[in-house]
Design a protein around this nucleic acid. Sequence first.
DNA 1: TTGTAGGCGTTATCAA
DNA 2: TTGATAACGCCTACAA
Lengths: 349, 349
Amino acid sequence: MTDTSNPGGGEGPAAARPRNGKQATTIYDIAELAGVNPSTVSRALSTPGRVSAKTQKRIEDAAAELNYQVNVFARALPTGRTRTIGLIVSDITNPAFFDVIRGAGTAASDHDYTLMLAESAESAELELTAARRLLATVDGLILASPRLADSEIQQLAAQKPVVVVNRNVEDVASVVADTDAGVADAIRHLATLGHRHIAYVAGPDRSWMSKRRWESIKARSDWSGIEATVVASGVPTVDGGRRSAAAVREGSATAVFCYNDLMAIGLMRELQAAGVRIPEELSILGFDNIFGSDFTTPPLSTIKSPLHEYGAGALRYVLDALDKGASDRAMPSLKTELVLRGSTGPAPA
Amino acid sequence: MTDTSNPGGGEGPAAARPRNGKQATTIYDIAELAGVNPSTVSRALSTPGRVSAKTQKRIEDAAAELNYQVNVFARALPTGRTRTIGLIVSDITNPAFFDVIRGAGTAASDHDYTLMLAESAESAELELTAARRLLATVDGLILASPRLADSEIQQLAAQKPVVVVNRNVEDVASVVADTDAGVADAIRHLATLGHRHIAYVAGPDRSWMSKRRWESIKARSDWSGIEATVVASGVPTVDGGRRSAAAVREGSATAVFCYNDLMAIGLMRELQAAGVRIPEELSILGFDNIFGSDFTTPPLSTIKSPLHEYGAGALRYVLDALDKGASDRAMPSLKTELVLRGSTGPAPA
DNA sequence: TTGTAGGCGTTATCAA
DNA sequence: TTGATAACGCCTACAA
């Protein structure tokens, strides 16, 4: 269709060097040009301060002139370090991970690290494969909403620093927000609006956070004298939400929390398609406050998660663990927050 | 807040080896256990077929018993190959890239390659940095909707196989869909509905595809005797679309194409907020058919792009280039397609 | 402060 | 078919 020209001539087995045929420049070239020993070049370039200012400059100039680029593999071989952090998200199409990714990415850049991103498409097997593959090349790993078993995660964490996001695993560092704060506000709000019975549409069974959210809702409802029940569970997608519509209608709840915004959107649309008016007949709440949660009519009320901080916090933690060997750094306290929009209203009479 | 326990004891400089203290097993260990030379192990494990069936099995058994894992750095040093392909997207928060990423990711897995994902956040500088960094470690690179200058891309392509998506760059392989097909259908549809004047809200000036889409719209409008004008341009986001609302209202067009769905959604919402009824007073069309483009009220009419195929096709091309050295493989012919939903209707009288 | 020399784990060349 | 041996590019004791 468009350009099908040769994107670069192959030159057989010499794939290591640039395709223009010239050898990539090494510290030996620099050493020669600067009139010093290669080891001095290595020191100057990797451990600034261990070389006299004069030779430092000479070496830097030579490096610049030769357009030198470190060979990360050669460096990784003796050190084992790559200045790279891996991030695995359970579903790249879930906008909730946008900000997690951005947060981790910018935090990585800030520290001159590179982020390697992979997704598991909600599959535990794929996740394990990706994790193992990544772990071989990165210095540390962040698992966002992992579907892996605790034992598998612990096994990974035994090899290199690992941080899980949105989940707790014994002996593994984790970044989780305090869901209680947002949930408390939400339930207080619903109580004020006259709701006496609320429902929860849960996420996947393997989701630690889905359970956590339910516990929070349940505790808070009890406290407020409101009845709360789990009416369904499913995949944490728009489609999963759609499929929960029947169960929701069968119940007698006048307000329903969904495990996340995606499910809430699916539920709302399916219900509306069946003629149910939102929020007049039913109030709907999501979790996370993802991109697009305000596109719907009515716009979705939701409990906002500090997505960006998940990513940034997790990354900083990994870096700390890398630096200090062990990390006793306290995780920042992250809070959720109620975002009221149009999908919640007074309980029907 | 949650678990802040030590995610793994540091053991000082020996970061290369597993944290349990044991050395990682090498081909030397296998050689010893199997009673052969390390070089034979290397052959057996990397170039199957160059070793007798008997020793092959012995080596594989030994490798399995010792739970051997190749050291990718050590392998990359002499070969220069990592079985890794880089993918840089201009904006990770644009759902249009979901399927591009998925397409490339699964195609990579199919061929036992790993995808490294990075984003440039619509910044040419960040993109160049990311591209250079990636290029050092990957075997090939895919640039999706790059903001780089042609010359910069050509420079990258001179080093390793590079494919650009959604853009044409001389002497660089590219994957682009035929926008004419979908645009022709759309304009025929609008003409039938009585529209005589349409507008185009363009994307970023650096976007090759934005220009391409305009050309297609213009050509097709001329052909149908419809007047077509560019009324605005901006960042390809919801917000960018919002900001084009004023310019759109000032014009006299009764139907407007936006560079992408994100802009179309922003425009529609801004207009609706100002009391404009869609599609009664104005028809709106987007491009790509992204996730969420049907969340709006009315749901968005759009021209669907073969997003998944962009990713898969680009990846296969890179792999081909890697294999054959040069690649004269023809790109698959990709077509766009009109998706009619609720944001288009008869021209107002 | 700088030079010397050995090693990181694999692949590749050359003999045997 | 297999074994010995030299790269690959960099880092790091150790010695000067």
